[in-house]
């Protein structure tokens, strides 16, 4: 017994030591970004690894807002994401709910379609979509950026809602139907209120998708007043390619909101124990 408990303690220590090392490795890029963003611009290369720059140059963060209208870009990014999130929540949850109510054949063909859509690379539709949007007069407007929200932004979000709605006991749907409720009413009064975690997860994932999107604004936006933050960061890079402290300060501004939102969502997103989170059977 004595030997056994010693072995268990040794195992626990080994597990935590390995896990802490791995976690540190995955956090390292963020730590280096933060420390580099506070380095005084124009210094010569350091001779050894420098974890904590001396002196801390908080002014880097002011400088980048003076060089470019980053405030405007942040507003634009928030605007695009702020419109995309509610539309996505409605379209994705409607489709996901309708899938739970179809018969087996209809449901399975829609599941198949969603999986196919999930693996179609966007590169495959870049060129043709560009020509299509230009013909429709969507060039240089947010309509081009927001178009995917009409189909739930990603088939994955439709599937997440489908799985979530399917876990709700059928009897609840049937009872509502007996009371004369149509599918729309059941979606709004039964399905959505019981799927709060999924709404939050999909909402935040959608926000992250539009907040970080670089390619769509790169292809479709020409006027600087419409630029979103990712394109603004690219502009910052073109202004001064080697001013690393400023570039990484920009990267920090871009990354911080994502990290904060991830902090909110991670307890739903990373199943802590069996049957918890949004993956439960």
């Amino acid at each position: 017994m004595q030997v056994n408990s010693k072995r268990r303690i040794f195992h626990a220590i080994a597990f935590h030591a390995v896990s802490i090392l791995i976690s540190a490795l995955f956090i390292l890029p963020l730590v280096w970004m933060a420390s580099a963003s506070l380095r005084q611009p124009g210094l010569p290369p350091p001779r050894t690894m420098e974890w904590w720059p001396e002196p801390l140059a908080w002014s880097n963060y002011n400088r980048i807002f003076e060089m470019l209208p980053l405030g405007r870009y942040i507003f634009n990014s928030l605007l695009v994401a702020g419109i995309a999130v509610p539309i996505t929540l409605v379209t994705a949850s409607l489709a996901g709910f309708a899938m739970t109510q179809l018969n087996r054949r209809g449901r399975e063909s829609l599941l198949g379609l969603s999986v196919v859509l999930l693996v179609v690379p966007t590169v495959a539709v870049w060129v043709a979509r560009f020509i299509l949007f230009r013909t429709l007069g969507l060039f240089n407007s947010y309509a081009a950026l927001l178009a995917p929200a009409l189909m739930g932004s990603s088939p994955l979000f439709v599937l997440l809602f489908f799985w979530s709605f399917r876990r709700i006991p059928r009897e609840l749907y049937d009872a509502a139907r007996m009371d004369g409720a149509g599918p729309l009413e059941i979606w709004w009064r039964v399905a959505l209120p019981l799927s709060g975690a999924t709404v939050i997860v999909v909402g935040i994932l959608t926000f992250l998708l539009y907040w970080g999107d670089f390619t769509t604004p790169l292809f479709y936006l020409k006027s600087q007043t419409l630029y979103t933050l990712p394109v603004g960061l690219r502009q910052l890079q073109e202004l001064d390619r080697t001013n690393w402290p400023l570039l990484l300060a920009g990267a920090m501004v871009m990354t911080l909101p994502s990290v904060l939102l991830f902090g909110i969502v991670q307890r739903f997103f990373l199943p802590e124990n069996r049957l918890a989170g949004i993956y439960g059977q």
Binding site: M33, A251, V259, F262, Q266, F269, L270
Partner: peptide, 27 residues
């Protein structure tokens, strides 16, 4: 602690692409 370790592993995945590129250019 497992929840924190998992969050740490996931963290680089949520960094926006442009910021992620700049970070690795620096590294």
């Amino acid at each position: 602690g497992v929840g924190l370790y998992r969050a740490a592993v996931y963290l680089p995945t949520i960094i926006p692409d442009v910021a992620y590129a700049l970070i690795w250019m620096w590294i």
